[in-house]
Computed example of a mutant assay.
Amino acid sequence: MPELPEVETTRRGIAPHVEQRQVVALRVRQPRLRWPIPEQLAQWIEGDRVQRIERRSKYLLFRFARGTMLVHLGMSGSLRILAADEAPGKHDHVDLVLDSGQLLRLTDPRRFGAVLWQENGTEHSLLTTLGPEPLSDGFSAEYLQQCCAGRRTAIKLLIMNASVVVGVGNIYANEALYAAGIDPRRAAGRISAARLERLTEAIKQVLAAAIEQGGTTLRDFVGGDGKPGYFKQELHVYGRGGEPCHQCGQPLLEVKLNQRSTVFCRQCQR
């Protein structure tokens, strides 16, 4: 699944081609994604300009004069900039045809993505319960300490909870906990303030580095230009179960937490 750095990479890739462009036509070939695409969407956006594209968590927000189109890439979705006459493939479900002679195409083989609408002056229900952005001032060590206080939940599951902080998916939760030296299984309420401060900084650093490098290469994700949109990072733990720890050389342990693969070093993470 594209995580926050991949979604931000997509936003940066498509924004120069889409912002301030008029939508000439909306073509919906498959309206049944994770949720049905609103039937009136074409009526709301055709003839209008995309003022800007923002990101909230893993949602891309296309700002129009009347409201906001929300796009989520789901498990395997991608957005690409193509010529307006580019023939669609089997899994190409939605096109935004632009006045530049290009189009923005949503491809989603598993159809777990979404294209939704939010009127001005309202907030979509999918956004109302989201926690702060991890790279914002709203996500601080003090805030994380408050969220962890008295909690028996494993710290990895807590930082992956979007109501606590958005965008810390499985890859980056593994990496941040390794950087902070914290066992992902440890109860959130049993971690000291000093260690939670290290974890806060690790989350920010890991995600910022991933965005700077363009995200982590995933098997079925392509960037806005139709090419791999980011470079392979050197991951310290994720996907490396049984391999030696980069710090101590001990084999990394791989377990399941809430059915998600979790890799860590028993020596370096306590």
Results as ranks from 00 to 15, higher is better:
Gly150Thr: 03
Gly150Gln: 03
Arg151Asn: 12
Arg151His: 05
Arg151Gly: 00
Arg152Phe: 00
Thr153Tyr: 02
Thr153Leu: 14
Ile155Pro: 00
Ile155Gly: 06
Leu157Ile: 05
Leu158Phe: 12
Leu158Trp: 03
Ile159Leu: 12
Ile159Thr: 04
Met160Trp: 15
Met160Cys: 05
Met160Phe: 12
Asn161Ser: 06
Asn161Arg: 09
Asn161Cys: 08
Ala162Cys: 13
Ala162Ile: 11
Ala162Ser: 14
Ser163His: 14
Ser163Thr: 15
Val164Lys: 10
Val164Asn: 12
Val165Phe: 03
Gly167Ala: 09
Val168Pro: 03
Val168Glu: 06
Gly169Asn: 08
Ile171Phe: 03
Ile171Val: 10
Asn174Gly: 02
Asn174Phe: 10
Glu175Asp: 00
Ala176Lys: 00
Ala176Thr: 01
Leu177Asn: 07
Leu177Thr: 11
Leu177Asp: 02
Ala179Ser: 11
Ala180Gln: 03
Ala180Met: 08
Ala180Asp: 04
Ala180Pro: 00
Gly181Ile: 11
Gly181Ala: 08
Ile182Phe: 08
Asp183Ala: 14
Asp183Ser: 09
Asp183Gly: 06
Asp183Met: 06
Pro184Gln: 11
Arg185Asp: 00
Arg186Lys: 15
Arg186Ser: 08
Ala187Leu: 09
Ala188Phe: 04
Ala188Met: 03
Gly189Asp: 06
Gly189Thr: 11
Arg190Asp: 14
